[in-house]
Design a binder for these strands. Sequence first.
DNA 1: ATTCTTACA
DNA 2: TGTAAGGA
Length: 122
Amino acid sequence: MRISELAREAGTTPRALRYYEEQGLLRPARLASGYRHYDPQAVGTVRHIQLLLSAGLNTSAIAEILPCIPDGVTVLAPTCPELLDALAVERARITTSIDRLAAARDVLDRLIQAGPAAGDQS
DNA sequence: ATTCTTACA
DNA sequence: TGTAAGGA
């Protein structure tokens, strides 16, 4: 598929996809026309990239992790042992981030006069 | 119509 | 990241 189709299916923009490529996150093939060509598995890859980016990982960290994620798998099973250390660091940072968000939510809860900070998924 | 690269009021 | 320019 070409860039616009991948963008649509993965919920992003061609601009972002070119940026990911520039950062070494994607290696699309090139058509004779010069247009980028992505295989269907790229949809899953892009979703992983977005998930990781939203979690605060930088592109270089994602570039290391990505090749450790098997095709089309939703749940990550095997990880590259050499990266466990770096992954633990990212995990800790995410935990810190979650705590920060929870603190912000508490402030809002008190402002909204809402009670339990635990039962609000609706 | 689409995509490509480069660049920035 | 958006967007414009200038080509293919």
